[in-house]
Design a protein around this nucleic acid. Structure first.
Lengths: 189, 189
DNA sequence: TAGTTAAACTAACAAGCGTTAGTTAGTCAA
DNA sequence: TTGACTAACTAACGCTTGTTAGTTTAACTA
């Protein structure tokens, strides 16, 4: 709180409200009220509502891209890379669950940056697809449809923002271990 | 198309638009334009925008409740019940992918029916939790955290609406088999 | 102390919102 | 042919939206 600029405070408050009701249902007056000021005063710190959304989403999307690039270029096995992806999502999501809600649900309201976001996302998915394919080739991963594996894994990881805040006593390492086990080894005995 | 009432047409069109932009960002004028009429004319068939949302969401939520009740009361093993839940989600989702988007993303904009919806949802999750617990007790399911299993499974099933429309050649039985395998047996060799 | 700046304010704008009232044109049964 | 019904229309309502302009207040800086 201490060293946060007023702009960062507004973005954080906005992200919380966006998570609850979605970008379109939140008004500048809602954000201002939560900040204890009038809507017009927000414009001393931010340039537009759209810009707030962009700041939230693009920052997170680029974090994911950076993280995955490191994993991709490491010399871990495919299964180890999968586990590292789980850890990456848990790390980023638990540091900003509110922002993750916008990333997942409000990306379509990006205007100028929409195309850029879509590129980041499809590249991200393609990179994971390559890791899975490689794992199947090296017999580390079962020969099921690549898309089914990718979809199932990403669905779970992208929903973490809904679930992590409910666990008040979060141990990222333990969650990474448990979730990796369930995603990779399944749940049957 | 033939035997659809005008009201059903409007609800279907609205669901498609809600999926693309979310309930709050879709205007009655948007829906009307897509129907080839003026916004005011919609009110000859529906009573309010809110009512359209309610029709979409509550119908689906009740379908899930009915389906799960049947599974719960069957004498299948826990693993068979899990597989039946996967099949239930695939069946309902593929019959109405657009509506599923509203169910997942716009339930918080329900007004009078919000409480009822939340009750259906939490009962639904509780019923699945019981099935998982029972499976762990009977050594059919690995002794991992019940919540991790529930969360991982439901995240994937709730995201099906995003993924099913992309597969133009959908075979529900094959998808059920593949997805059950990945969710239950995992992906490693 | 005087000048500058940061960050709040009030007031207002044009545009868009969901919805209502009243009207009109076409279709069918009596 | 008349009367009722259906489903569209135009026009407008009161309200809310994001945003701008201009002003005020208080705190630093010279």
């Amino acid at each position: 709180m201490k060293f946060e600029t007023r702009k960062e405070e507004i973005i954080k408050v906005a992200a919380t409200l966006f998570k609850e009701k979605g970008y379109s249902a939140v008004t500048m007056r809602d954000i201002a009220a939560e900040m204890g000021m009038k809507a017009a005063s927000l414009y001393n710190h931010i340039s537009s509502k759209q810009h707030i959304l962009k700041d939230i989403i693009i920052k997170l999307a680029e974090e994911f891209t950076t993280g995955l690039t490191q994993i991709k270029n490491s010399k871990a096995t495919s299964l180890e890379k999968m586990q590292a992806i789980v850890a990456l999502h848990i790390k980023i999501t638990s540091s900003n669950t509110d922002g993750m809600a916008s990333l997942n649900n409000d990306w379509m309201h990006l205007e100028e940056k929409l195309e850029y976001y879509l590129k980041l996302r499809s590249d991200y998915e393609d990179d994971i697809r390559v890791i899975i394919k490689d794992g199947i080739l090296k017999k580390e991963i079962a020969d099921v449809s690549v898309d089914v594996i990718l979809f199932s894994m990403l669905s779970t990881l992208r929903s973490l923002y809904l679930w992590i805040p409910k666990k008040d006593d979060l141990h990222p390492e333990k969650l990474t271990k448990d979730l990796s086990k369930v995603l990779i080894s399944g749940v049957n005995k």
